[in-house]
Amino acid sequence: MILKRSWRIEVQWMSEQSMSERSPAGSPAGSSAGSSAGSSAGSSADRTRSAILTAARTCFAETGYDGTGLRAIAVRAGANVALIQRYFGSKEGLFLAAILPRLDVSLLLDGPMDEFGARAASIMRMKVGRGFDPMMALLRALATPSLAPSLSAALSRQVMAPLAARLEGDEPEMRAALILAHLAGYEMLLRVLQLPELAEAKAAARETALATTLQDLADGPR
């Protein structure tokens, strides 16, 4: 049963990642382009905007918010800085447009909550090396005070609120925040700092321990 559940999660994860990468930001996957002459310019603008967002996600994930300049994003996107400023106003505006729409916990919540810990731990394992990771980009931006209010509001709205709504028992909002804290801390120590005690541990043991901790928080006090 565990292997079957892990396989189902992995197939769904890969499918959603593929759809997400193919769809322009702000447009549903599979939407058809307009056939009128006026749609040509709009399509070109959409492609340019999408290229900028894709380049921004890559740069922010690789070098962090402070280490990324608009010129580097423009070069990667095949655009120019003036065009980025026209579409997004500033680097902060571009960061928020590129990262926040990708904060999606639907896969975490897709299933019984008594399997939440195992499901979350499996996703944390499978997403390594599988394309853009919004959590990694957020972690690399935490040292920028000007972003804190926007990031805090987005995490509350897009992550903690839907998670808390699925938690039964007392203080679901606090437990949702603690789950997020564990996931973010795990990501930071394992993938950013590569803490030896985590990085060199057996993957199965590490995943089981994380799953147990997350499930305890999801279940709440007994």
Results as ranks from 00 to 15, higher is better:
T213D: 10
Q85K: 13
A74N: 09
V11F: 05
L183A: 09
K202C: 05
A25S: 12
S23K: 15
G89R: 10
P162G: 12
R71Q: 11
G26C: 12
E10G: 02
S6T: 01
M136C: 01
M126C: 06
T208R: 15
R22T: 02
L190V: 00
S122H: 09
A25K: 08
S122K: 04
R86F: 14
I84Y: 08
D114R: 15
R140W: 05
A201V: 00
A205P: 00
L138V: 07
R47W: 06
Q85E: 14
L139G: 12
F95K: 03
A164Y: 09
I84N: 10
K4T: 08
V159L: 15
K91G: 11
L178C: 13
A143T: 10
L190F: 07
L178E: 07
F132L: 07
L103F: 11
G30D: 10
M135E: 00
P149H: 09
S32A: 13
Y87K: 05
D66E: 14
F60Q: 07
M135G: 03
Q215V: 04
G93Y: 12
A204I: 06
L183S: 02
S44M: 14
E168P: 06
A141W: 02
V128H: 14
R157V: 00
L109P: 03
C59P: 04
P134W: 12
P24L: 08
T63Q: 15
L151A: 12
S27R: 15
A165V: 03
R49G: 03
L139H: 05
P196W: 14
R102K: 13
A209Y: 03
L190W: 07
T212C: 04
K91S: 11
K202D: 13
L139N: 06
D114Q: 14
R166D: 02
E62P: 01
P112H: 10
L217W: 06
A77F: 00
F116V: 00
I84V: 11
S44I: 00
A165M: 09
Q194S: 15
I9P: 06
D219K: 11
E197M: 14
D110R: 09
G38I: 03
G38M: 03
S146T: 14
V105Y: 01
E62G: 05
G129V: 09
V81C: 09
A98M: 10
P196G: 10
A153L: 10
A165E: 12
A120S: 06
L180E: 00
L107M: 15
G30S: 06
I99N: 08
A98Y: 04
P134R: 14
A41F: 05
D104V: 08
L108T: 02
D104K: 08
A37F: 06
E62W: 08
R102C: 11
M174C: 11
E173R: 15
A55I: 08
S156N: 14
G67M: 10
R130I: 02
L190N: 10
R76I: 06
L109W: 04
L193N: 03
I179M: 11
S50H: 15
F95G: 06
A72W: 00
L53G: 01
L190G: 07
A143I: 05
Y65L: 08
D104A: 09
S150D: 12
L142G: 04
G220H: 01
P112S: 14
T48R: 14
E62V: 01
S20P: 02
P196I: 12
S20H: 04
S35R: 05
E200G: 03
D170K: 11
L167W: 04
Q85L: 13
I73V: 15
